[in-house]
């Protein structure tokens, strides 16, 4: 679905005489392949290059060196831009900056209308996508009456209505309360499982990573770790050096292991934790 080869992205700083004073490599020789239908989480501290990477996949930025292929289309070819943006939709952090219409269903219909989809089909798509994120009953409401989590789900529905193959969430849960975050994550997980949409989820919330089947960790513009959530979260000390954490449950299990309690590595969920306690016969 997404093929990134030797991608480099430089931010160039110039002084008043247009002389280059500084070059920062936000992306430094990155190679990533995302299969169709995968749910990939991207982790990294602020400034590690995650968001720059996302903007490349959405063709908001073009490669300086290397290449980005989305659904077989090269982002360097300007003719492909609109098709790429249609197949890889992006959800941003602030729910208030993404909604434009005054009624929920009109907001969701805006995308397909812009693509020149026939009116009847637009309404069909609006219905399907609002239903898929559980927001159908709010279709006649004004978006500014919705909670943050509901707004983000409307934003996701707006993307779904354009029939994308991939959704990129760029810290889309950062501004939400716990309930809103859960609503968004469950909607996205469902789209991934039922509609087979490829998901790229950029986040700082470690407990959201357990939804993913593949994790990419970035630091200083490079991919420094890659693997399943369990593999990644077994490397507690290494993540700490990258200014990241593991989910609280994983950390607790790790601390207990250090005390000599026999537990398996990389416990991610409560169910796994309790299963371990049960097999040890302590509960």
């Amino acid at each position: 679905m997404i093929k990134i080869k030797n991608l480099v992205h430089e931010y160039i700083r110039r002084d008043e005489n247009d002389e280059v004073t500084d070059i920062t490599k936000a992306i430094d020789d990155v190679n990533i392949e995302v299969e169709k239908g995968q749910f990939v989480a991207i982790l990294g501290h602020n400034g590690s290059g995650k968001s720059t990477l996302a903007k490349h996949i959405n063709a908001l930025l073009y490669p300086g060196e290397g290449s980005v292929m989305v659904d077989g289309k090269d982002t360097r070819n300007t003719e492909n831009i609109w098709e790429i943006r249609q197949s890889a939709g992006m959800v941003f952090q602030n729910p208030d900056n993404q909604i434009i219409a005054t009624v929920v269903e009109e907001d969701v219909g805006f995308g397909p209308e812009n693509l020149g989809v026939a009116p009847e089909e637009i309404w069909q798509r609006v219905e399907n996508s609002l239903k898929s994120v559980g927001m159908w009953k709010y279709r006649k409401d004004s978006p500014n009456k919705l909670s943050g989590g509901q707004k983000q789900r409307v934003a996701i529905a707006g993307i779904m209505a354009m029939h994308p193959k991939c959704i990129i969430l760029d810290e889309a849960t950062a501004m939400l309360d716990p309930k809103g975050r859960l609503e968004v994550m469950e909607s996205v997980k469902k789209l991934n499982e039922v509609e087979k949409i490829t998901v790229l989820h950029i986040t700082h919330y470690m407990e959201e990573v357990i939804y993913a089947d593949h994790v990419i960790v970035m630091d200083q513009g490079k991919v420094v770790m890659e693997g399943s959530p369990r593999e990644i979260f077994s490397r507690v000390e290494e993540l700490g050096r990258l200014h990241l954490e593991v989910p609280k449950i994983t950390r607790l299990a790790y601390e207990l292991q250090k005390e000599g309690v026999p537990l398996k590595n990389g416990i991610l969920t409560e169910e796994e934790f309790i299963k371990e306690l049960k097999s040890a016969g302590v509960v």
Binding site: E270, I274, V282, V283
Partner: peptide, 19 residues
């Protein structure tokens, strides 16, 4: 629509499992 800390949540589950 709120929650308890993740660790507290886990402890409730351990308790429910009989610990």
């Amino acid at each position: 629509g709120l929650s308890v800390p993740q660790i507290t949540h886990l402890m409730y589950s351990v308790r429910a499992a009989g610990g």
